[in-house]
Design a protein around this nucleic acid. Structure first.
Lengths: 217, 217
DNA sequence: AGGGTACGATACGTGTCGTACCGTAAATAA
DNA sequence: TTATTTACGGTACGACACGTATCGTACCCT
């Protein structure tokens, strides 16, 4: 769980347990109501007032914990989403990447999370504070997670250590995000195959001479 | 120029020139004021009221032509942006794609258009009507434009006609959009090189056997 | 002249946000 | 027990931007 305090302040060792504690039940009810409304209306048409109504909680209680709609939805979304993105270990780089990308696409298309993800990316462009939280607690987290597939391929010697893992992730998931956000073409399985085919083929080519190392940062 | 009517209705042959015509001067002033405010405040903090004030025009006049803030900003942005995306003809596929991607990145980083582009992509997630306009009059337009580079490479025989041009565009520009929207890493020149190196290498590999044709649509 | 349309100015209703207030509830500390 | 501290519910409120309505005036055609 990621509370508002965790998002904005470094975790304090002393939780200061004087006074009435925050209701865990309210917390759960708010997150649950948020997810319900995310399903029914989507990110844009979700209002804090309605969440409060649904959760049988005062609106004030929500604002005490989450400063904005974005941070609330972020929390309701992120843990749930990340739990559905395991790292495959099929063996080859191609198999791993394809399985991971398929998994990503499946969740995007098969649940409401695709629309919510798009809504959050949109909100991030509007709210600089949310952008920071988003990068640190989602983007970096997912990428670190996914980078394991590439690192393992390098360790196995399947891939040259000249390869910039960051660029690889940008190619794979950038393409997928692109279709999600622009909606110009569907996130089909053939798309996933073509993306992974092309990228892996490109990586397995010996590209000594065209330096591609260390450009990520 | 793309007017509101052009966006929502098929172009009528009879422009109906009875009555007082719309002031072209007002049109220019509104677009100019929009671009000014886009520079000063960005997409999010731009308000129609302020555009009206700046353009010395009634707010009503703006709403007569553009139904929403998104469509107004879209028009102020798109022609300007597209004019800065010429198709290079250096010769090889690698050279063409790299030059085009560099050009894209240069405009994104060197002008306010990067922020505006991000803001528009965000707005598109919130406004379904704008989304339609965006796809038809921007995304498809840019992609058709860019696809020429790939088609020419196929004609030259440099590239197999098995290659799905749509996927190629998603890989290149998807990666760039990804860094623009997520801000996790900079849009450096090394990034552009690595992206093009990897994708072109992947395309030049003979991938007969892994069908990648016709999955774009 | 007359009809049709755009214009300016302004007022208005709407929706959502986020905050302020205040009496009450729940926990700790003396 | 009593005092203190903090969260809670309920509600009212201010702020802000949106988009619409109204109406008298300006412009261009037939």
């Amino acid at each position: 769980m990621v509370t508002c305090q965790d998002m904005t302040e470094p975790t304090t060792s002393a939780p200061a347990l004087r006074g009435r504690p925050r209701s865990e039940r309210s917390h759960q009810a708010i997150i649950a109501a948020t997810n319900e409304l995310l399903n029914e209306r989507g990110f844009v048409d979700l209002t804090i007032d309605e969440v409060a109504l649904r959760a049988k909680v005062s609106k004030t209680t929500i604002y005490r914990r989450w400063p904005t709609k974005g941070t609330l939805v972020f929390e309701a979304f992120s843990d749930q989403f990340l739990a559905l993105q395991p790292i495959p270990s099929a063996g080859s780089l191609h198999e791993d990447l394809l399985a991971a990308l398929r998994r990503f696409i499946k969740v995007i298309k098969g649940t409401v999370m695709g629309r919510t993800l798009a809504g959050l990316v949109a909100e991030v462009q509007r709210d600089p504070e949310l952008a920071e939280v988003w990068r640190d607690r989602f983007v970096v987290r997912v990428r670190t997670h996914h980078r394991v597939m590439i690192d393992r391929a390098i360790e196995r010697g399947e891939l040259s250590d000249d390869v910039d893992a960051e660029v690889v992730l940008d190619l794979l998931y950038g393409a997928a995000y692109h279709r999600l956000l622009q909606s110009h073409l569907p996130l089909s399985d053939g798309f996933a195959q073509a993306v992974v085919d092309t990228v892996v083929a490109g990586l397995l080519t010996n590209h000594a001479g065209t330096a591609t190392k260390g450009v990520g940062g």
